[in-house]
Nucleic acid binder design. Sequence first.
DNA 1: AATGTTATGTTATACAATAACAGTCACGGA
DNA 2: TCCGTGACTGTTATTGTATAACATAACATT
Lengths: 162, 162
Amino acid sequence: MTSVGFEKHDHDHCIADGVAAVAASCQARGLQLTPVRRRVLEILLSEHRAMGAYEILDTLRAEGLGSQPPVAYRALDFLVKHGFAHKVERLNAFIACTHPGENHTPAFLICRECGAVVEASAEPAKGDLGAAAAQAGFKIEQTVVEAEGLCPVCRKKKAGDA
Amino acid sequence: MTSVGFEKHDHDHCIADGVAAVAASCQARGLQLTPVRRRVLEILLSEHRAMGAYEILDTLRAEGLGSQPPVAYRALDFLVKHGFAHKVERLNAFIACTHPGENHTPAFLICRECGAVVEASAEPAKGDLGAAAAQAGFKIEQTVVEAEGLCPVCRKKKAGDA
DNA sequence: AATGTTATGTTATACAATAACAGTCACGGA
DNA sequence: TCCGTGACTGTTATTGTATAACATAACATT
């Protein structure tokens, strides 16, 4: 079982399940999943890719849910802060988390061709990097791990072209 | 021997050696280390921290070496492309490479307190992440590995405060 | 001289992020 | 009931990051 992966799948499920999981988590933790926050989460879930804040804002604006940048950023901050979404630094963009609620160190596989982003997991602090940090006396609190390359679908396409 | 590390050291050496190494590498590879490119490298070497493109641009402008963003970005692109500098995605900023020329996968330790950045090295593609990618059929071409936390100096300060 | 290549200069604009302040609404306590 | 208080939303304005597009310069090759 791969983590979502690059294949097609039932999307409505995806969104509904994702929102439900987050809603439950909010309930349990006393967090408010307000309309804007819920909608931003849905927008993120509705695409399996990272979206820029302004792209999200465009949708919100079209729906009358808010039209200025802070509206989108605040909702995104909430989602990121509580682990319901992540920021992909390489792209300055955001993506819904595939394991909402669970405590984890996300890692991403980013296709440079089609822009698809898949969340994996990594514990870099436990390998090379952890050793280097320990040696330097550096205390790691958070890590960003992002890999760029070609997803299986685009690899096949490239092979076909050649 | 740690890789530069968070301690003080002889800076003039640092800059001169860094430029010389890059110049040699350019020579060997038929690349042009033009005045702007060389100056940007010097600026980066002169601070052991990540600098924003506009901060660099300010210096260039003061020296009459170019005043518009593309000037700085092009020089930075050149340096990054050939491995003489790196972009720290987390900070949207750039830093001179500590092992110019050598083929490597950089990783960074970023102090959230003082902003110091130290380059380490990591092979995330060989651990968890590599396995996950392989399973998904994803071909990793480049990786971003950045850890944020507290450097030894700031840790001591904190301890002193408490 | 004509051409191609590489680098630089400049304008304008797009995209990303946040500071600062005003308004709303629900809730608990005086 | 009235009054805070806190959490969220709305809006204006601004700062910071990055690039598209086009013009020019310098130089090597033919």
